[in-house]
């Protein structure tokens, strides 16, 4: 069975990249508040870190599962 962390990680990596990229090229601050915060850039970075972590652990678990499967066959 697929390690669920992998698709979740990839999904948030992709969304994080989209938000960071969009935040970097656009000037959308948060409407209706006085503070200047590029929320797309900041929150996109949070999603990137989360997505990268999930992808890493998911990939590691998948690799271990493949390794265990090979060992059990041999």
């Amino acid at each position: 069975m697929m390690d669920l962390r992998l698709p979740i990680g990839i999904f948030f990596l992709l969304v994080g990249i989209i938000l960071v990229g969009y935040g970097a090229v656009s000037t959308h601050d948060i409407p209706h508040i006085t503070q200047k915060i590029n929320i797309n850039l900041d929150w996109g970075a949070v999603l990137l870190v989360f997505g990268a972590g999930m992808t890493f652990f998911g990939w590691k678990a998948e690799a271990k599962a493949r390794h265990d499967k090979r060992n059990s066959k041999s």
């Binding site: 938000l19 969009y22 948060i30 209706h32 797309n40 929150w43």
Partner: peptide, 9 residues
Amino acid sequence: YYPAGLLGL
């Protein structure tokens, strides 16, 4: 409060 981009999320 959500600008384009975050609004999609």
